[in-house]
Write a protein that binds this DNA or RNA. Structure first.
Lengths: 226, 226
DNA sequence: GCTTGCTATTGAACACGTTCAAAAAGAGGA
DNA sequence: TCCTCTTTTTGAACGTGTTCAATAGCAAGC
């Protein structure tokens, strides 16, 4: 069950109306931004009454979530393709996040609306909520694959926690990117490069006995995150 | 210039009205939560018209920010006292965050309202905004002191970046704590312990030539964060 | 005491997200 | 074709954060 779609059964006609509303909304969000677009604007652009928008979407923000869901599904094969034949871990991680940035780019500004309730795991639209669990877990799988296909052997005790950790870092990077006002988001570019570099280096070093105590604490920390 | 206080000059009478409004607001926030309290509730509890609330505070959330500011000022000496005579780095860091958790505890639930726009550095109430810079920098000083008074010698190239990094981690911990539904926020307790442990261990190890390349990248990463 | 100008206070009005009862449109029999 | 039940659509109404023009209060100068 999708967190944003309300009608369980839907006729083809209803499906048309739904996508007309979503398309109108996304166009307006892109043109003038999320906050500057009213539900009345959306309804009238889609040529329906306000109520219709709420018949198909729980809230204004749920429209953005609907976009995010479709995006995540659509990115799946692109990511597979981008991972193909790469063996270096950093390059593989890079491939995953690059696909996302590229896909999200035209919608960067309004994606911020999704993260407004991000911190509150009770909020249905939070990336940490029960309602978004499926999307989240599907997304973590990408990192799982990125790890498994690389030529780097990982410590076994750390391995189960890594997808979650990488996914979390990715959320941080996306967040930074959304609000990055530098030309062409150059700062994000640097941040991505350096942080993936660190992750890869630390993972390489993590097998060394030298870092064993730190690794143990790190694992406990990751467990505390649930 | 404070980010939330509007009148530049203020008579004693005005000051009284202002604090009556703030007190009424905080009481209501504590009793029934931020979202369940309306500006009309606040105004009538403070026995003023709605307009008066907006004369003194830019927005509903600015009321929470006013609390946060006062809190930060009030915590300063408590933190000094808590740091006194401690030399172990982890213990010193712990002392800083403990004071905060203790002080914030009765207001934990409504503090979440402040972090709603946290991600957007353009928003005046974001912890990363121009408007909140003073508060933020004063707060970072606490970590600076925690570092300097410890018996651990830090690598010089890393030192200038550490207060910002620690402050950032602290924000993450507070965020986690605000939404931590576990009994007595036990999960936060574990998270704090482990993460300060890791920070302290890594700082101890950071001088080793073994970690030199990682340290270099880490510094570049911190620079990318500005 | 009166005037002038600033500070403080008022509350109606506005904008916008959201709800909901009612109407319209369809689908499937009889 | 007509009746019945479900799905879809409508738009007025509501609640709440916020604005703003108007008013009251007050201090200083004359």
């Amino acid at each position: 069950m999708e967190p944003t779609a309300k009608p369980a059964r839907s006729t083809p006609k209803a499906e048309t109306t739904r996508s007309r509303i979503l398309a109108a909304a996304l166009n307006l969000f892109r043109e003038r931004g999320f906050d500057q677009t009213t539900m009345r604007d959306i309804a009238s652009a889609a040529e329906v009454a306000i109520g219709a928008a709420y018949y198909y979407f729980e809230s204004k923000e749920a429209l953005v979530m609907a976009f995010y869901q479709e995006a995540n599904a659509a990115m799946h094969e692109r990511i597979q393709a981008a991972l193909d034949r790469k063996t270096d871990l950093k390059a593989r991680l890079r491939a995953v996040v690059d696909v996302k940035f590229e896909y999200f780019a035209p919608n960067r500004k309004f994606l911020g609306a999704l993260l407004r309730h991000a911190a509150d795991p009770e909020h249905p639209l939070s990336p940490f909520s029960r309602e978004t669990r499926e999307i989240r877990e599907r997304d973590m799988l990408h990192f799982s694959e990125a790890l498994d296909g690389s030529n780097l052997r990982l410590p076994e005790d750390l391995r189960p926690h890594l997808p979650k950790l990488l996914w979390l870092s990715q959320m941080g990077l996306i967040l930074f990117w959304i609000y990055d006002r530098s030309e062409n988001q150059a700062r994000t570019e640097r941040l991505v490069d350096k942080s993936l570099g660190i992750v890869a280096s630390l993972l390489k070093l993590s097998k060394s006995p030298f870092l064993r105590p730190v690794r143990r604490t790190a694992i406990e920390l990751l467990q505390a995150l649930e």
